[in-house]
């Protein structure tokens, strides 16, 4: 589940502690943009100690490491792999070259840490025009890749256009990224909404992202967790239908029928996959009474 992927600045101890209780699906400890050049070593050590010591519960732990073109990248990946990160977010990904670099460092890091090959996955942050055009190449470059994420701020700069709230400037990039990611069976995570004080704007932005096929959103402010979860919360009717689909398929299988229909429509594999995805979202949203964790604002009720 990657509805909400919250960035935490890597060199601020109090913010790292907040990660233990904030209701996000994914925590992204940032060693890149949030950390000044002369504090890269300190942030790497601080995040690693935090990962080794603090209990972040069910949340997926991701570390955004530094650009593969910098000397920090290798040290970052080795240290945070050893400290127990679930995934590494690779910034400024441009095609297979970036992915293969990151993957080969991860090979080394996993061996050093005594982890089995492939334990740590890659999330590719794509934030340049060339990166967007090579999204499919990057997505299919390594079996480690588990998700694509869009970085709209840098992309707008690269495109030479203004980043706006309406975000028409990102239309092509979003569509392209969803297509490339889904073509490879990956999660696709939308760019963050940048106005921390505009929760309703964030909700609308996240609804739009979901309508395009994204299954999550990067989040730069805890105030956006609630609107993002609300946006990814399925309707009661969607959930009811999804449960019916799964039940019909189960019965069909039991009765050994090849083709299953529900409400006069054939159910095929894509429909079942979609239904399962809806049920997962419903569970995460606290709609099915399965308590994955304490309900957070935006989950359940409403």
């Amino acid at each position: 589940m990657r509805r909400s992927c919250l960035f935490l600045p890597g060199n601020q101890p109090s913010m790292l502690q907040n990660g233990m209780v904030l209701a996000c699906d994914v925590l992204i400890f940032d060693l890149e943009d949030a950390v000044s050049e002369n504090e890269k070593d300190a942030a790497r050590e601080l995040v690693s100690q935090a990962l080794l010591t603090l209990d972040f519960g069910m949340r997926e732990i991701v570390v955004r490491v530094n650009d593969m073109e910098t000397p920090h990248a290798r040290l970052d990946i080795i240290r945070v792999t050893e400290a127990g990160a679930d995934a590494v977010m690779v910034p400024k990904t441009v095609g297979a070259t970036t992915v293969l670099k990151a993957a080969s460092i991860l090979d080394e890091a996993e061996e050093k840490a005594g982890l089995s090959h492939g334990s740590v996955s890659l999330i590719l942050l794509i934030e340049t025009a060339m990166g967007i055009e090579k999204a499919l190449e990057a997505a299919s470059a390594s079996s480690r890749v588990s998700a694509l994420a869009l970085g709209g701020e840098d992309l707008a700069a690269d495109l030479g256009c203004r980043r706006t709230k309406a975000s028409h400037e990102l239309y092509y990039a979003r569509a392209k990224l969803v297509m490339a990611g889904r073509a490879c069976g990956l999660d696709v995570i939308d760019t963050p909404f940048t106005d921390a004080r505009d929760a309703e704007g964030c909700y609308k932005d996240a609804c739009y992202a979901r309508s395009l096929g994204f299954n999550g959103k990067l989040v730069i402010s805890p105030h956006h967790l609630e609107p993002v979860h609300r946006a990814f919360r399925p309707d009661e009717s969607e959930v009811a239908y999804a449960l019916e689909v799964v039940e019909a398929m189960r019965r069909g299988k039991e009765e050994g029928r090849g083709a299953v229909s529900l409400r006069g429509k054939m159910i095929d594999l894509p429909v079942l996959t979609q239904a399962k995805r809806t049920i997962e979202l419903a569970e995460a949203s606290g709609m099915l009474g399965t308590k994955r964790r304490a309900p957070a604002k935006g989950d359940g009720e409403e």
Binding site: Q17, D41, A42, E45, Q49, A50
Partner: peptide, 17 residues
């Protein structure tokens, strides 16, 4: 009021530097 993990990380970095 740093937690122990923060203290360890900062000391480690200072010595390393």
């Amino acid at each position: 009021g740093a937690l122990d993990c923060t203290l360890r990380a900062r000391l480690h970095t200072a010595i390393h530097r």
